[in-house]
Computed example of a mutant assay.
Amino acid sequence: MLDTYTIRTHDMPEEMRILLDRYPRESWADHPGFAEKTRHWLGAHRMFRRLAAGIRQDGESLLDGEMEAGAYADRLAYLGGHLIANLHGHHGWEDRSYFPELSAADPRFDAGLALLEQDHADLDAVLDTFDRRANRAIVLADLEPAQLRDAAGEVHATAETIEAFLERHLGDEEDLAVPIILHHRLRG
């Protein structure tokens, strides 16, 4: 079965990047408006990137014969469960609370926030596929180890998609949100 996903490949529109030119990424940590809440939010993004990379790397280790089936299944259950639950919670909070706060502060960027919200919806489809494939691989590790390799290959392919999706989405989200926060001294 061929899974297709809607994943935005185009850059954030230039008009959504005007504050980023004024507040470039390398200056964020030194800005007086860069508060602990923003550091925590960026830390969550780092965690998502690490979890997705860990899932992909574990798949490669299993496929290369460097990891046992049981260890793979245990790590997949742990890392995959954390990735899915935390992404859903994080994106739900952003859509209901964080993005409305940014919009109220500077509605010029509503089009960019709408793109990011659509990313959240699109990522849900990928996460659903990942969840089904991961659960199948976990079951096969115990019941039909001979079939695990193919299932792990499908999980690995989906993990690569998630990793690429997160790289695009989280980078754009950070580049849009943090300059708004700094400019308007939000979340302090």
Rank of each mutant, 00 (worst) to 15 (best):
Y5K: 01
D11R: 06
E15Q: 12
L20A: 15
D21M: 12
Y23A: 08
Y23W: 13
Y23D: 08
E26A: 10
W28E: 07
A29I: 14
D30N: 14
E36I: 10
H40K: 13
W41M: 01
L42C: 07
A44K: 11
H45A: 01
R46K: 13
R49F: 04
R49S: 00
L51C: 05
G54Y: 01
D58V: 06
S61T: 11
L62G: 02
Y72C: 04
D74Y: 10
R75E: 05
N86F: 07
N86H: 13
H91A: 14
H91E: 14
W93Y: 08
E94R: 00
R96Q: 02
E101K: 04
S103K: 05
D106H: 12
P107R: 02
R108H: 04
L115Q: 12
L116Q: 01
L116A: 12
A121F: 01
D122T: 10
L123E: 03
D124C: 09
D124M: 03
A125K: 10
V126R: 07
T129I: 11
T129G: 03
N135P: 06
R136Q: 14
R136I: 08
I138W: 05
L140G: 12
Q147W: 13
D150C: 13
D150H: 09
A152P: 04
E154W: 13
A157T: 15
T161D: 00
F165W: 03
L170H: 03
A177S: 02
P179C: 05
I180D: 06
R185K: 03
L186W: 03
